[in-house]
Amino acid sequence: MAGILSVTDPDRLGKTDRVDAWWVEPLLTVLGLTAFIVYSTWAAFQGDHYRFGPYLSPFYSPNIKEWFGWNLDFSFAFSILWVPAGFRATCYYYRKAYYRSYFMDPPGCAVGEPHGRSYLGETEFPFILQNLHRCFFYLAAIVLAFLWYDAYEAFFFKDAATGPATFGMGVGTIVLLVNVVTLTGFSFGCNSLRHLIGGKLDCFTCGATARIRHKLWGGVSLLNLRHTEWAWVSLFAVGFADLYVRLCSMGIWHDIRIF
């Protein structure tokens, strides 16, 4: 006979009968997200080394300092980064990730939470603000348009000796292109977009517009199936794009011109 164990045992953090490594996923999530938050905050505070040739770091796009010729005392990255940060923070996937990993609410499925903690979910401030995800999507889509423009600009290299910009491609061009493609995959698989573009309809066959929206909903749903993967790949890509431009600008890495 085994020891006496009641099914009504009080919960405590991590209490479970699961024998698999359920803690690996939240641990990796904490490590991954914390590394990105620390790096991106540091990079945003720097305020320099965000441009190298035709390459512009996505953390500093749009380059409002260059546009308006402002001489700012602070890093203007913060005037941009709140948009993608808000978009990711309110994203349904990231909510799952940090509720599980940072708040341990719950740390895993059928795993105990810290005992005696009251729970309000997303019914009260601050988490009721998660409902504004669609607003962050609208703003993030604007930022995304600038990043596509930056990727386009990364194909045109200015040479001080020859004068006008010439078409070409460097490793940095590919880095910025991969960055914007993955960000597009992530943004256009958004659950809010999936709803707004067609999911809100009850009838997909009631008229020509509804039929078109059904097709668009199908496309967004296809991207949404891999939203988790897009979220992580795009997070890595955007961090790496900044790192690449930064290290090239500092002269630590050398950009290779493909043609």
Binding site: Y92, R95, K96, Y99, R100, D105, P106, C109, A110, Y119, L120, G121, E122, T123, F127, I128
Partner: peptide, 15 residues
């Protein structure tokens, strides 16, 4: 129905 109490941690989908 208290939909706001769900914090979409997806355990329901997993099981």
């Amino acid at each position: 129905a208290g939909l706001g109490f769900c914090n979409i941690t997806k355990c329901c989908t997993e099981v």
